[in-house]
C-alpha cells in the first residue's frame, strides 16, 4: 500500500510518519500533486494557524487537488478544519468538503483544549472495534460544531464534532498518532478502508 502524507509545511508531520511506521506502513511525505493522486491513502495533516496553513496550501496548488481525490483521505487536526467550509480563525475559507463552519471555544473554558478527552457516538469503519468513550489526545482552540457529517462527538464546553466523514473524506480533530494504542487502531482502520 502506498500512503502519502501531504507535506505542505504546516506543522510537525514526523509523529504521523513514525506512527505509520510502527504499523509497518511506509509513509511518503510529498507536496507533489501526481504523487498524492497516485497514493492508495492520503493523510492531510496540519498544525498551526488556519489562514497561514491555507496560504501554504494555495501556494502549492494543493487546495485544488485535495477535493478531487478519490482514495480515502484523512485530515488530522487543522487538516480536518481546513476541509470544512470556513474557519473563524483568520477568517479562512476552507476546502468546502465538509459542510460546516469551524468556530472558536469561548473563554468559559481553557483554550486551547490540550490533553485527553473522550470520543463517543462513533460511526463508520474508521472506528471499527474502537470502544465508545475512548480517550484521544487533542490540542485545539477551534472546533467543528455538530453537523450531518459528524462521525464522532466530544464534549468540551459543548458537544462538538471530533470526527467528520463525507464520501472518501475523513477528518479527525484529535491526534490518533499521539493517542496511544487506541489511536494506533484508528490509523490501522484507516489503512484498511
Amino acid at each position: 500500500m502506498k500512503l502519502v502524507i501531504i507535506n505542505y509545511g504546516a506543522g510537525n508531520i514526523q509523529s504521523i510518519k513514525f506512527a505509520f511506521e510502527r504499523l509497518g506502513v511506509h509513509a511518503i511525505l510529498s507536496d507533489d500533486a501526481d504523487v498524492i493522486k497516485a497514493a492508495d491513502k492520503v493523510i492531510f495533516p496540519g498544525v498551526g494557524e488556519a489562514s497561514s496553513a491555507m496560504a501554504k496550501l494555495k501556494a502549492t496548488g494543493l487546495d485544488k487537488v485535495i477535493p478531487t481525490l478519490k482514495q480515502p483521505v484523512l485530515g488530522i487536526c487543522l487538516g480536518m478544519q481546513l476541509m470544512c467550509n470556513h474557519s473563524t480563525e483568520g477568517d479562512t475559507t476552507g476546502l468546502g468538503i465538509f459542510d460546516v463552519d469551524v468556530v472558536k471555544f469561548s473563554n468559559k473554558v481553557k483554550v486551547p483544549q490540550i490533553g485527553w478527552n473522550e470520543i463517543e457516538s462513533l460511526k463508520t469503519p474508521l472506528f471499527k472495534d474502537i470502544p465508545e468513550h475512548s480517550f484521544m489526545y487533542l490540542v485545539h482552540s477551534f472546533y467543528a460544531p455538530k453537523c450531518d457529517a459528524m462521525i464522532a462527538s466530544t464534549n468540551y464546553e459543548v458537544d462538538y464534532a471530533s470526527a467528520l466523514q463525507k464520501d472518501n473524506f475523513y477528518g479527525v480533530q484529535f491526534h490518533p498518532e499521539k493517542s496511544g494504542k487506541v489511536g494506533q487502531e484508528i490509523l490501522k482502520n484507516f489503512c484498511q478502508l
Partner: peptide, 8 residues
Amino acid sequence: AEKINIPF
C-alpha cells in the same frame, strides 16, 4: 519519537 505514541 520513533518509539512512543503519546505526546512528547
